[in-house]
Write a protein that binds this DNA or RNA. Structure first.
Lengths: 206, 206
DNA sequence: GTCTATACTCTGATAGAC
DNA sequence: GTCTATCAGAGTATAGAC
């Protein structure tokens, strides 16, 4: 799980309970959405009583917000790590691979995010229009530079980034569908690694 | 909106109200998810009282189910239309374009579907494991044949289909994020048309 | 810090008049 | 067919004992 607020709790027991609540909340919110989740479910998953849960967080909304705000940074880290000085094709391929890795390692976080965006992002619009947009514009400019220098193919940089999001997050967000279609024998993420390597190699080759 | 059950109502007023309820329900369910939606919201959007709404449908679940079951066929129509006798590259490109068209014309239906899958598809697993999987396997076999005949590049047919879903549906499901990042001046779907043409041309070129 | 008990609101669904 | 009134249960949150 994402470590949201390492400096928050004072005592050991507080730290442990806060941690348990956020872990449980991630599990429940990502699977049910904000309104679909109940404090009962979260409390039970965290091994606490409902009032005790509300001793640590003032409201359901506060728990959700804590998860979301902590998630944004983690979510953007791979894109932030894309190095303007690096080798263009390797930087883009590595970004894609890190994103796919995140889908595999943190599918619940991906679904939490997806649930929120799907419903109009009522609780994180500011983050999207702020940090997210700024970072994407900055990296899009870098990618455009690479394209103009002939290092990669001339593709729209914003949509290149969208395509990386769409393709990698699909394997986390639509996991049940992917597995139902492929059947129990196949390994979605391993195959996705191969497939997406091919796809993006062909897309960005100059 | 999708015309779900044209033969259902008897009188004109019944037809009109049933239609209004399904239209309103699509609006609300797609934006809020199943549990997030309330009968009050749907009733208000349909211009009816809550008891009157429940005169036409026995329960909230029944309305949702009616939407979902009608949607599956519409959703699969473009893939079903892919012709094994057609020109391989054109067939795949046209499938992708029809899917993107559906994302633009029916974003609410796309989000209804996405909400359901994200939450584990509790109300449509049978459809996914049945009709959907059967159709995908059938078309994947066709695509595999094309690849083996050298008509298109050798890519995994299942993941090719997933990539079409992921990339086209992304523009409907994550619409608010796409627009927030691109800004108000740009036209996401027009640009996506260009970008995805390029992407899939390069991916499947032999 | 944690629990029991409970207040209060929202929501899905029904009864019954018109 | 449609409405007003209302019920029962779920769900968020608080009070107060320990």
């Amino acid at each position: 799980m994402v470590d949201i607020s390492p400096q928050r709790p004072q005592t050991r027991i507080q730290r442990r309970n806060t941690e348990a609540i956020l872990e449980a909340a991630l599990e429940v919110f990502s699977a049910q959405g904000f309104r679909g989740a109940t404090l009962d479910q979260i409390a039970q998953a965290a091994g606490l009583s409902k009032p005790n849960l509300l001793y640590y967080f003032p409201s359901k909304e506060a728990i959700h917000l804590e998860l979301l705000s902590g998630l944004m940074d983690v979510w953007l880290a791979p894109l932030r790590a894309m190095d303007p000085e690096g080798e263009p094709r390797a930087e883009i391929m590595n970004y894609m691979r890190r994103k796919l890795e995140m889908s595999r390692e943190m599918p619940r976080e991906s679904r939490l995010f997806a649930n929120e965006i799907l419903q109009g992002a009522p609780r994180m619009m500011e983050g999207i229009e702020g940090d997210l947009r700024t970072l994407v514009d900055e990296k899009a400019a870098v990618i455009r530079g690479w394209a103009e220098a002939g290092k990669i193919a001339a593709v729209d940089p914003h949509h290149l980034i969208f395509s990386i999001w769409a393709l990698t997050q699909h394997y986390a967000d639509f996991d049940v569908q992917v597995r139902a279609v492929l059947g129990p024998e196949r390994d979605p993420f391993a195959e996705a690694g191969q497939f997406l390597d091919t796809l993006f190699e062909r897309l960005i080759a100059p």
